[in-house]
Measured scan of single mutants.
Amino acid sequence: MFKRLMMVALLVIAPLSAATAADQTNPYKLMDEAAQKTFDRLKNEQPQIRANPDYLRTIVDQELLPYVQVKYAGALVLGQYYKSATPAQREAYFAAFREYLKQAYGQALAMYHGQTYQIAPEQPLGDKTIVPIRVTIIDPNGRPPVRLDFQWRKNSQTGNWQAYDMIAEGVSMITTKQNEWGTLLRTKGIDGLTAQLKSISQQKITLEEKK
């Protein structure tokens, strides 16, 4: 169930391209415009997507990853294993993690069937560096609404905000991946996880038929 919630949630996290980005210092504006741009692209490019579902990787690479804190999220997933990894191991892992996100997020976007969304009203940021933004996803086919909290983090150097995690039903996506990959990290280390991520990233994206 959580895996499905995570995939549905990713439908609204794909941010804007650099040329049309919203105010990078306001995570609420980023979330709002990102959702609108993403849904528009999914709707307008269905012919290309249906002809070649792996085209979704391109959308992810162009529109999402430049505005997601990939390395920060990847380091959180590694936890204690990050500090013990060599620079070469980290570089290989982050490259594999990025390719994994292209496949995983692309597969999530393949679930698009006309969903709509509501974003919580903007709250004062103050001096906060981590801000959760509640998004409610509404399914046109009558499924119950899904309420999610996207975690946005302020870059201490640039002042810009980027998304790095999502919490559904009190469970963090980062925590879920830590639990899912924990045994592999304990037995085969970061190299074993890197190899698995490379394998997963090679899987073809498949479209979910409308139910």
Results as ranks from 00 to 15, higher is better:
M7E: 00
S201W: 05
H113W: 15
K3F: 05
Q115G: 08
S156E: 02
R50D: 11
L42S: 03
R186F: 02
A75R: 00
P140F: 15
D191T: 07
R147T: 03
P87H: 08
L148P: 02
E63W: 00
G114A: 10
G106H: 00
P87D: 11
A35I: 15
E45D: 10
Q36E: 07
Y28K: 07
E91Q: 11
V135H: 01
L207A: 15
A108D: 02
M111F: 14
N179K: 03
Q46I: 06
P140C: 15
Q103M: 15
L197I: 15
M173I: 10
D191M: 06
G182I: 09
T187Q: 10
T183C: 06
N155A: 01
D127P: 15
E169Q: 05
L185D: 02
M173P: 00
Q157E: 04
D149T: 03
Q89N: 05
K29N: 14
I200W: 02
L16Y: 10
L64Q: 01
I130A: 02
S17G: 14
M166R: 00
Q89K: 06
L148H: 01
A108V: 13
I167K: 02
I174M: 15
E33K: 05
S199L: 12
Y55D: 07
S201A: 08
A96N: 07
Q24C: 12
P121D: 06
Q196R: 11
A104F: 03
W181Q: 12
Q62I: 11
L65K: 04
Q123L: 12
G159D: 08
A195P: 14
G126C: 08
R143L: 05
R41D: 02
D32Y: 06
A195H: 07
A73Q: 11
E63V: 01
V68K: 01
W161A: 03
L10W: 10
W161K: 01
L42I: 15
E122Q: 12
F150G: 08
N44H: 09
Y93C: 06
A9F: 13
P145A: 08
A34I: 05
F39A: 01
G106M: 09
A73F: 04
W161I: 02
Q118G: 09
E91K: 06
R147H: 09
P124D: 06
A120E: 06
L185S: 10
N52M: 05
G126W: 13
I119P: 08
I137S: 12
Q115R: 02
A96T: 08
R50S: 10
L10E: 01
A92R: 10
T175V: 14
A110L: 15
K154M: 11
M166P: 01
E208W: 06
K198Y: 13
I174F: 08
K154R: 09
V12E: 01
I138F: 12
L5D: 01
M6W: 06
I133M: 09
M7K: 05
D191A: 08
R50Q: 10
Q80W: 04
F39Q: 00
T129K: 15
A75M: 00
Y55T: 14
Y72A: 00
D165N: 04
R90C: 04
F94S: 08
L101S: 15
Y81K: 11
T158N: 05
E99A: 10
P15H: 14
Q196H: 13
S199Y: 09
Q24N: 14
E208P: 14
S156P: 03
A85W: 02
A22L: 09
K154P: 06
A34L: 14
A163G: 12
K198L: 13
L76M: 06
A73T: 04
M111D: 01
V68L: 15
G170N: 01
A18F: 15
N52K: 11
L78G: 01
P124K: 14
P132W: 01
K210L: 08
L42G: 03
I59E: 03
V8T: 06
V131H: 09
A22C: 06
N179I: 05
Y164C: 04
Q103D: 15
E122D: 13
L76T: 03
L207C: 08
K37T: 13
D61Q: 14
T175C: 03
R134P: 02
N155E: 00
V70K: 04
M173D: 00
Q24T: 11
L42K: 00
T58L: 08
I200S: 14
L101C: 15
T25N: 09
M173L: 14
L11C: 06
R90D: 05
K154F: 03
Q178Y: 05
E33Q: 12
K188Q: 09
A163C: 11
L109H: 13
T175P: 04
K128M: 12
L30V: 06
Q107R: 05
Q203F: 13
M31R: 00
R50P: 08
I167C: 08
A163V: 10
P87N: 14
E45L: 04
I205P: 15
T129L: 09
G126S: 12
N160H: 08
A21V: 10
G182W: 02
A35P: 02
S199Q: 14
A34Q: 02
T176E: 00
Y100F: 14
I59M: 09
A22G: 13
K37A: 09
K43S: 14
L64F: 13
K37G: 11
V70R: 03
S84V: 10
P132K: 05
Q107F: 10
R147Y: 04
I119Y: 10
M7D: 00
G79S: 04
Q115N: 11
F97T: 08
T176Y: 02
G159N: 14
Q89R: 04
A21D: 06
Y112R: 01
M166A: 07
R50F: 13
T194N: 11
Q107H: 12
L76N: 01
L10F: 09
G170C: 03
D139Q: 15
D40G: 15
T194H: 08
N155D: 02
P27G: 05
L109Q: 07
Q162S: 05
F97P: 00
A9N: 00
Y72S: 00
R41Q: 04
T206G: 13
A120F: 14
S201R: 11
A34R: 03
G189Y: 03
K37L: 14
L184M: 12
S201L: 06
E45N: 05
T183H: 13
N179P: 00
Q69M: 02
Y55Q: 09
G192T: 10
D40A: 12
K188I: 06
K198A: 10
L65T: 12
F2H: 02
K154H: 10
L125F: 15
Q62C: 05
F94A: 07
F150L: 04
L30S: 08
E91W: 04
P132H: 12
S199V: 14
L184R: 08
A195S: 09
Q202A: 08
A163Q: 15
L197M: 11
Q24P: 14
Q103Y: 04
I119C: 07
L42T: 09
T187N: 12
Q24V: 12
V135Y: 03
A14C: 09
M6A: 02
A163R: 00
G170K: 00
P53F: 04
I190N: 06
L64M: 03
K154G: 05
L64S: 00
L16T: 06
L76E: 00
R153H: 03
K3P: 01
D23M: 15
L101N: 15
A96F: 09
T206V: 09
K83W: 01
W152V: 12
Q162A: 07
Y28M: 11
N160F: 11
V68Q: 15
A21Y: 14
A108C: 07
K177M: 10
N141C: 08
E63D: 08
L148S: 05
N160M: 14
P47S: 12
D149Y: 06
Q202G: 09
P87Q: 13
V77M: 12
I13E: 00
T187I: 14
A104L: 10
L30N: 05
D127W: 15
V146G: 08
P124W: 09
E209Y: 13
L101I: 15
A168H: 01
V12N: 03
D54Q: 07
T183Y: 11
I174V: 06
L10R: 00
Q151M: 10
L148M: 13
Q151Y: 11
Y105P: 00
V146E: 03
K29W: 10
A85I: 04
S84P: 12
D40H: 14
D61G: 09
I137T: 15
S156R: 02
G142E: 05
A85M: 07
T194W: 03
I200T: 13
A14F: 14
D127G: 12
L184D: 13
K3D: 01
G79N: 03
S156Q: 03
S17E: 12
V135E: 03
F97I: 12
G182E: 04
T158P: 01
R143W: 07
G114E: 07
L185E: 11
N52C: 04
K198M: 06
A35T: 10
D61M: 04
M173A: 00
T158Q: 05
A95G: 11
M111Y: 04
N179V: 07
A35D: 04
T183W: 10
W152C: 09
T194S: 13
P15I: 03
Q202N: 06
I119K: 08
Y100W: 12
K83M: 05
L64I: 03
L78T: 06
Q115W: 01
L64V: 07
T194L: 06
